[in-house]
């Protein structure tokens, strides 16, 4: 029986068309509804407003800050994995998976405890005499980046580990034998090898930061506003659906542009080396 597989795929395809592609098309259509017929009114209003424009820039900045910090911490963890034996490797995977599979709201809650006035950071600073009185990092950009980085870190570690686990340890031996130091091996052999994983991770991290509504709302507070909250405000309190749609399309486009750029970079063979 070499039956065609198409009938099996059909239900999921129909589901995707009816409940995924169609709503998105409608969303895009909605975003062009102006007060007098189809227009770019919503986009003009959104991008013309100085506050909204700042929110958009803040969101992009937050995404880039999260990408930078997860990369800075993710690479040494991946290298720790690379230089470890079988058991230690399994422990590292386990330690990465626990936070990743723990609810986002739970992780956000943990950060409220950590960043608060009575939390461990503030208490330690006071105990060491580095701060005169207890302080809170809630509603600050620093606090938010600290939280977002921890929440998104597994997204960058796992693609890196996936690459390293497929690579035999002998891979760096040639470089070692020819006398290259560890930093040189890192820059010329390991990092180019990990680049596709970094790209995959960056896409995931950026997509995640542009959707982490709860963390941004709770830890960012009222003073730090990001695009997801703006969308929710238009829907939930202002009931301006066309405007919400336009903001959503802008969010989608900015994520999409990054996605395409990353894919193009990863296909550029000279940058990725031999991958």
């Amino acid at each position: 029986m070499k039956a065609s597989g198409f009938p099996y795929v059909l239900p999921m395809l129909l589901l995707s068309v009816a409940f995924f592609a169609t709503p998105l098309a409608v969303l895009v259509g909605f975003s062009f509804i102006g007060p007098d017929g189809p227009s770019l009114h919503n986009y003009a209003r959104f991008l013309g407003d100085a506050f909204n424009y700042r929110v958009l820039v803040n969101t992009a900045t937050l995404g880039l800050q999260t990408i930078a910090s997860t990369t800075l911490l993710g690479i040494p963890i991946a290298l720790f994995y690379w230089h470890s034996g079988k058991t230690a490797r399994q422990v590292i995977i386990f330690l990465t998976l626990i936070p990743m599979l723990t609810s986002n709201v739970v992780r956000t809650f943990a950060w409220i405890v950590i960043l608060g006035r009575q939390g461990p950071i503030s208490e330690t600073f006071v105990a060491l005499g580095l701060a005169e009185r207890p302080f809170t990092l809630m509603s600050t950009e620093l606090g938010l980046v600290l939280a977002m980085c921890q929440i998104d870190l597994p997204l960058i570690i796992l693609p890196l580990i996936a690459i390293l686990s497929r690579t035999p340890v002998q891979f760096t031996e040639a470089a070692q034998v020819s006398g290259a130091g560890p930093w040189r091996i890192l820059v010329t052999v390991l990092l180019p090898m990990m680049l596709p994983g970094l790209l995959a991770g960056w896409i995931l991290v950026f997509a995640s930061t542009s959707a982490s509504f709860v963390t941004q709302a709770v830890i960012g507070g009222a003073r730090n506003v990001y695009v997801p909250q703006l969308i929710y405000r238009e829907v939930g309190t202002l009931f301006d659906w066309p405007m919400a749609s336009a903001i959503a399309v802008v969010l989608l486009l900015s994520t999409g542009i990054l996605l395409v750029a990353m894919t193009m970079i990863s296909r550029h063979r000279r940058l990725v080396g031999h991958a």
């Binding site: 969303l27 749609s245 959503a248």
Partner: peptide, 15 residues
């Protein structure tokens, strides 16, 4: 999987 799910939630609500 790639689309911010907040955007999808809004689109589904509208439809």
């Amino acid at each position: 999987l790639v689309l911010p799910s907040l955007v999808y939630g809004l689109a589904a609500l509208i439809v």
